[in-house]
């Protein structure tokens, strides 16, 4: 099922929650997860990631507004794409906005054509799931999480205007 708003679109598998919203005066933000998202959350999902189940995947895509101190296509935003497929090596507990046991994060800044700067923030909960116990039917094993996330991100499209 395709989620689309403000020039951002993404295919989400069955069972995934997603939202593309824009706060007053701000640029759009996308949240997606393979577990239930809270009704209200901060832009980088500090509430959602606090309730992440084992095997959970969360991603936030936040757009920034270009200005005197933020130049699309330069410096931190020099990249023009997301490095897909993602590698497990990209994820590290130190990349988390809020450090939590069992979680690893990934941050990537880039500029989508022609002048839309974004930050992609993804979190995996790689906490051990006991053998024979699968509390969340649609959640993948830890080794599959990066693959799932890569497949979802490969469907992302960003239009030139909002």
């Amino acid at each position: 099922m395709r989620l689309a708003a403000y020039g951002i679109a993404l295919d989400l598998p069955r069972g995934w929650d997603g939202r593309i919203y824009r706060r007053p005066g701000a640029s759009p933000t996308l949240h997606a997860a393979n577990f239930s998202l809270p009704a209200n959350d901060a832009d980088f999902g500090s509430t959602a990631t606090a309730r992440m189940p084992p095997g959970g995947i969360f991603l936030a895509l936040k757009e920034y507004q270009a200005g005197p101190r933020l130049h699309p296509g330069l410096g931190l935003y020099a990249s023009d794409s997301i490095p897909l497929p993602l590698s497990r090596r990209y994820f590290h507990p130190r990349a988390l906005q809020v450090g939590r046991p069992g979680q690893s994060g990934f941050q990537h800044f880039f500029t989508a054509a022609p002048r839309r700067p974004f930050c992609l923030y993804a979190v995996l909960n790689t906490a051990h799931v006991p053998l024979g116990f699968e509390p969340f039917g649609t959640l993948p094993g830890a080794q599959d999480q990066v693959g799932h996330l890569s497949r979802v991100l490969s469907t992302l499209t960003i239009a030139s205007g909002q």
Partner: peptide, 15 residues
């Protein structure tokens, strides 16, 4: 949503 945001509510096995 009423604000025009896009939203998807997953209703899978873990919902």
């Amino acid at each position: 949503t009423l604000a025009g945001d896009a939203v998807k509510l997953g209703l899978g096995k873990d919902a």
